[in-house]
Design a protein around this nucleic acid. Structure first.
Lengths: 235, 235
DNA sequence: CGACAGGTTGACCGTTATCAAAGATCGTGG
DNA sequence: CCACGATCTTTGATAACGGTCAACCTGTCG
């Protein structure tokens, strides 16, 4: 039930069009070039909860999220799940296996009903050789992600949970929006997994932040940041 | 004292030649193409202990290690140092800042007297557009590193020190060489930093492994793996 | 030979995981 | 639209893991 026979026929025609044009790695191309890309793109559909790929699967495609939300997670050597990142429309995944001949090391799962545009490895490599500017875009994205992953690794290695949580909250603050009120982008259970801790600890630390007057928990996922300085001092 | 006026004049001529030809991202090119790359490459020299770049420095070059050893490390928000990786001849660094207009987030320091080949951002971008196959090589390397960084992050997030150390030892085992004896590639102090722990803990855990009969410490950096199964069970 | 960085060992204690159980929330089907 | 179950969240008690500090040992290099 993973390929898109439920979505109407325009999946294979309209969806890639809307998708490709909005993807940062392609949107600098000319219309004619985009058409060439769409020609090798197809659309796949996953229902909430379905797994898109598993660690160990041979990877042979780049997936671009067209609609929905996808979580990328790993199972550690000892079997614990860790959330690595969530993808929103315009984001892509496919990673390592796209460029070297190996298998996925992470899992990708649909968090909602999700539509993805898929470009097969061979097609992508051909496109990259033909349109080098796309490679530069992907390189920029990869290096951004690499920094992100290394920053995250350093935090795990050197900061305590309290600090990691405080930094996470701060990074949720939209610099645009001065509202100082954030919506957690995931459940506290997933947040615990993302931050490498447990739901119990998240709950307790948030309580402590609230007791200290740094934040106020408005509802389950809505948190007001009352004292950013205080939060920043948490280390 | 960071640029190479100490090395004899052939730095700018011989060194890049030897260097470029041995670098995986370039070594598939034709001689003529390599010469073009060498033309925009220069050679820089750092003494042991010198810093090559700092977090916050504007990055504008790709560095390829030609001789010596370089450590890449980060300072966490709270000031602790964490070793990210060490570069050997043929490896490169430059990262994010090469492709997007930002600054380094990590530090690079020479662990020994080190010679680097440097290609400036503008030159590199031009080369990448002209020789798309080089982009593919860099993409492959970046995605490999990305997997590595994410694996490391997952380990920090989900495994205890004991397990991380055991996995590290196992990964030091050369699959070629069946000797079951490893040389630690860095001091135990650096290893502690790499694994996100302290020298004291490393020392104690190694003692425990030895007491359990999993390993035998031959000398400071030489360790014999006696019971791989036992080590693997450490979790 | 002395100095200094790296390494080890011991005592102590803070942080956070774990287990258990109760309470809140969400999605689903009647 | 409500009721039910499943899942998420909170709270409490407990203990282990590992960090910190201090002292001492060891090897290396000028």
């Amino acid at each position: 039930m993973s390929t898109g026979h439920n979505c109407s026929h325009d999946c294979d025609v309209i969806a890639p069009a809307g998708c490709i044009a909005r993807v940062p790695i392609f949107n600098h191309l000319k219309l004619q070039e985009m058409k060439e890309i769409m020609a090798v793109t197809d659309s796949v559909f996953y229902r909430k909860g379905e797994i898109i790929y598993r660690a160990g699967d041979r990877s042979d495609a780049l997936y671009i999220v067209s609609k929905g939300r996808v979580k990328i997670y790993r199972l550690s050597e000892s079997g614990k799940e860790q959330l690595l990142r969530t993808l929103y429309p315009g984001d892509f995944t496919g990673e390592l296996a796209l460029f070297s001949e190996t298998t996925h090391e992470a899992y990708a799962g649909a968090m909602e009903d999700t539509r993805l545009c898929r470009i097969r490895r061979a097609d992508l490599q051909r496109l990259l050789l033909k349109y080098p500017s796309v490679s530069l875009r992907i390189l920029a994205e990869f290096s951004r992600r690499l920094e992100e992953a290394e920053k995250q690794a350093t935090r795990f290695a050197t900061e305590k949970v309290e600090t990691r949580l405080a930094l996470f909250l701060i990074e949720c603050l939209d610099p645009e929006n001065r509202a100082n009120e954030i919506m957690l982008p995931m459940s506290k259970k997933d947040l615990a997994s993302y931050l490498g801790t447990t739901p119990e600890t998240i709950s307790r630390k948030l309580y402590e932040f609230e007791a200290a007057g740094y934040i106020k928990q408005k509802s389950n996922k809505k948190i007001a940041i009352l004292d950013l300085e205080g939060l920043l001092q948490q280390r």
